[in-house]
Computed example of a mutant assay.
Amino acid sequence: MDIKICGPGCASCEKTQKVVEAAVAAKGIAATIIKVKDFQEFARLGVFSTPAVVVDGQVKCVGRVPKQSEVEGGIS
């Protein structure tokens, strides 16, 4: 499973990464978590507001820090 955290590196983006890491650990799923900071890559993924979480090419959350339960539901 590939999970991309899209954002320029702001506090919300960092918090989103921690939430995603906690969700992956809680579910015991093997996943690669990648930080994407390039705005052109955001657009290619269909993300126009950050932070965003993209799981296996599908945008799961955009423009806010997700709750851990949301991430866990999106990666099951």
Score class of each variant (00 low, 15 high):
Ala31Leu: 06
Val47Gly: 06
Ser76Gln: 14
Gly57His: 06
Lys27Val: 06
Val20Thr: 09
Thr50Gly: 07
Asp2Arg: 15
Val54Asn: 05
Gln17Lys: 15
Gly7Lys: 08
Arg44Tyr: 00
Lys15Val: 07
Thr32Leu: 08
Thr32Cys: 03
Lys27Gly: 03
Val55Arg: 01
Val20Phe: 11
Ser69Arg: 13
Thr50Tyr: 03
Ala52Ser: 12
Cys61His: 05
Phe39Cys: 00
Val24Met: 09
Val53Arg: 07
Ser69Gln: 15
Glu21Phe: 03
Val62Asp: 05
Lys4Val: 13
Val19Cys: 06
Ala26Leu: 06
Val20Asp: 08
Ile3Cys: 01
Asp56Arg: 09
Val65Phe: 05
Cys6Asp: 05
Ile33Tyr: 03
Val55His: 02
Lys4Pro: 08
Ser76His: 06
Lys4Cys: 09
Lys4Phe: 13
Ser49Arg: 10
Gly7Trp: 03
Ile29His: 00
Gly57Ser: 10
Ala26Pro: 01
Thr16Gln: 13
Gln17Ile: 03
Val53Lys: 09
Thr32Ile: 10
Ile3Thr: 04
Val20Lys: 03
Ile75Val: 12
Ser69His: 12
Lys18Ser: 14
Ala43His: 04
Ala23Tyr: 02
Gly63Leu: 04
Ser49Gln: 10
Lys4Asp: 13
Thr50Lys: 04
Cys13His: 10
Gly57Ile: 06
Ala31Trp: 01
Val65Asp: 04
Gly9Tyr: 03
Val59Phe: 01
Lys35Ser: 12
Cys61Ile: 12
Ala52Asn: 08
Ala11Cys: 09
Arg64Asn: 10
Val55Met: 04
Glu70Met: 12
Ile3Gln: 02
Asp56Ala: 13
Phe48Tyr: 11
Gln17Leu: 12
Ile75Ser: 05
Phe39His: 07
Ala23Trp: 01
Ala23Pro: 02
Ala30Tyr: 00
Thr32Ala: 14
Ile34Cys: 00
Gly63Asn: 09
Ser12Met: 14
Ala22Ile: 09
Lys18Phe: 02
Leu45Tyr: 04
Phe48Ser: 09
Val71Phe: 04
Gly28Glu: 11
Glu70Val: 12
Asp38Glu: 14
Lys60Gly: 07
Gly9Leu: 08
Ala22Glu: 14
Thr32Asp: 13
Phe39Gly: 00
Lys15Pro: 06
